[in-house]
Design a protein around this nucleic acid. Structure first.
Lengths: 114, 114
DNA sequence: GCAATACTTAAGCACATGCTTAAGCAATCG
DNA sequence: CGATTGCTTAAGCATGTGCTTAAGTATTGC
């Protein structure tokens, strides 16, 4: 009852499944109904809906029911957050290597690494 | 027995846990031993090692045992693959919107979206 | 209205994940 | 050499995930 998790947990977990990534792939080419998403997926429709729920919970896709059809579309801004987290860590790493390089060139600096 | 999974499954799954992300965070600032990684983490050392195994299996970190200390360091190239997957999908989406824009401006094209 | 369509809900089950504790083992240190 | 340090292995367990089938509920077409 008391397990409120980081949005990034949910986001990366959503991306960790191949069926869900293929759904994102499909949606990146344009919005689709549930059964259109299900068609290539060799699993039951309830299973697809559960994957869709995971994607919706992460914010990666939004859905809207029109008549009896649920139309799903991608929210690329949310993907951006995942991308940004990764980019930041890679940047920190790169900066550190730069500083390390300077240290090796200019021995008056001190206390690098660890 | 025949469940060989996409590297991206493993990669994104590795990123989906907050403890593991904080380990990556730590390692982006420089390499560390297992107990240095464990120190801020309020869990047993075996638990930390299991997280480390997940990170190592994904390729995000590499480790090397020197004496009785295992030194861990980040492999940022692997993170790059995750970043690339996301960037590609966002690009496809953006391209599609561009084409859609052109379609709206130049009505001689046909068959966009649905 | 009646049937087909397009989802939706619910229950259940196999397996994976994220911990734990208890033992172990190899590399220093005194 | 014997004790401490730093990691490693193994087992067990609670909870979560990814499906399934069966039985709904609205919409829409005839």
């Amino acid at each position: 009852m008391l397990k409120q998790s980081d949005p990034l947990d949910v986001l990366f977990a959503a991306l960790a499944d191949p069926s869900r990534r293929s759904m994102i792939d499909r949606l990146s080419r344009g919005s689709a109904s549930m059964s259109e998403l299900a068609a290539p997926l060799d699993m039951s429709l309830p299973a697809v809906q559960q994957h869709l729920n995971v994607l919706a919970a992460s914010g990666i896709v939004s859905t809207k029911k029109i008549g009896r059809v649920r139309s799903c579309s991608l929210e690329p801004e949310v993907l951006n957050q995942a991308q940004r987290w990764i980019a930041e860590r890679r940047q920190i790493w790169a900066d550190r290597l730069d500083r390390l390089g300077m240290f090796l060139q200019e021995p008056e600096s001190q206390g690098e690494n660890r």
